[in-house]
């Protein structure tokens, strides 16, 4: 195990719209709680990507910043080299799309992706996919149900050999009609789940960490468990979690 685990947060100013920077914070903190030194390296657009990190994290962003991030990433092969060298990658939403073969911008233009994941993303005329998501992960990942929040206009179709992260129970996920969510290629994990996904799903965080560091001792997460229970319930019973509706009834009953 390296003396200090370095987690690269790629382009937080471009791919940071949905709080996905929190994924890096979760990874680092879960190492520190196990007495493993960890640091987060913010990599800004225009700066070279460091080669020596163990985990690379990318989040979601708006269209113009996403295209800019893809341009920056394509200017070198550092990310692919790092994965070959044993590093893991978590790519969320726009990040997932950028790691695929191709993705469409809002203007309809097709941009080249990095090709680390065998998928491509186009746009359809439908409304953005927005809301709570529940996913049953692929059994070989050995993870509990995933909870998250999606918000994207893209439709991602997986290549013939690609493995999804799981099957959608509530929500849209990849939205390509096959009921899949996300895509996994070895240590590279792509997902549409915000939340941030690792804050709501600590098992996925530990899965990424063990994929580069080997087995780790378990941590107690009672607060996360309460949150997970609440979110999984909210996703399955949305009408019971509409605060406006509920307080409307309360107001009516109280007669004020």
């Amino acid at each position: 195990m390296p003396e200090r685990v370095a987690i690269a947060l790629l382009y937080p100013e471009l791919l940071g719209t949905y709080g996905d920077g929190g994924n890096a914070a979760v990874l680092a903190q879960r190492l520190r709680w196990r007495n493993i030194a960890a640091e987060i390296v913010d990599v800004h657009a225009g700066e070279p990507i460091p080669r020596s990190c163990q985990i690379y994290v990318m989040g979601g962003g708006e269209d113009a910043p996403q295209a800019l991030a893809a341009r920056e990433l394509r200017s070198g092969s550092i990310l692919a080299d790092a994965v070959d060298g044993g590093a893991a990658v978590l790519a969320v939403c726009a990040g997932l799309q950028v790691l695929g073969q191709r993705f469409a911008g809002e203007d309809g233009k097709t941009h080249d992706g990095l090709g680390l994941l065998d998928c491509e993303t186009h746009r359809d005329d439908g409304p953005r996919r927005v809301g709570e998501v529940v996913v049953t992960p692929e059994p070989e990942l050995g993870l509990s149900e995933l909870t998250g929040y999606e918000n994207h206009g893209g439709v991602t179709t997986l290549g013939p050999t690609a493995t999804p992260l799981g099957k959608v129970v509530v929500g849209n996920g990849n939205a390509g009609g096959d009921g899949t969510e996300g895509i996994v290629n070895g240590r590279v994990v792509g997902t549409y789940l915000h939340g941030p996904v690792l804050a709501r799903n600590p098992e996925l965080a530990d899965h990424l960490l063990t994929s580069v560091l080997g087995p780790l001792e378990p941590l107690d997460d009672p607060e996360v468990e309460s949150l997970r229970k609440e979110r999984l319930h909210a996703a399955r019973h949305p009408h019971m979690h509409m605060p406006q509706l509920r307080s409307g009834w309360r107001r009516l009953l109280r007669g004020s």
Partner: peptide, 16 residues
């Protein structure tokens, strides 16, 4: 912290 319609239903921004 609420996540009603007027707040935005996604409180992921708490991590920023």
């Amino acid at each position: 912290i609420n996540a009603g319609v007027a707040d935005g239903r996604d409180p992921s921004w708490l991590w920023d």
